[in-house]
Amino acid sequence: MDPIYLAGVNDPATYINWGWLSISVPNLIVILIMIVLFALAILLPFPKGRDRS
């Protein structure tokens, strides 16, 4: 039985064209994930350790 892939990594990626900007959907997803991670790292409170009162 053929394995089931979440994404076809051997297929050509879909590209988004917006004026001069041309970017593949996988690259766009990775960049968005990094931006969200960065924002969360700034905004989310850091848990306090047991040794800090």
């Binding site: 790292a41 700034i42 989310l44 850091f46 800090r52």
Partner: peptide, 8 residues
């Protein structure tokens, strides 16, 4: 250092 940004 008690901030998530310092974890990366």
């Amino acid at each position: 250092v008690a901030s998530w940004i310092y974890v990366f």
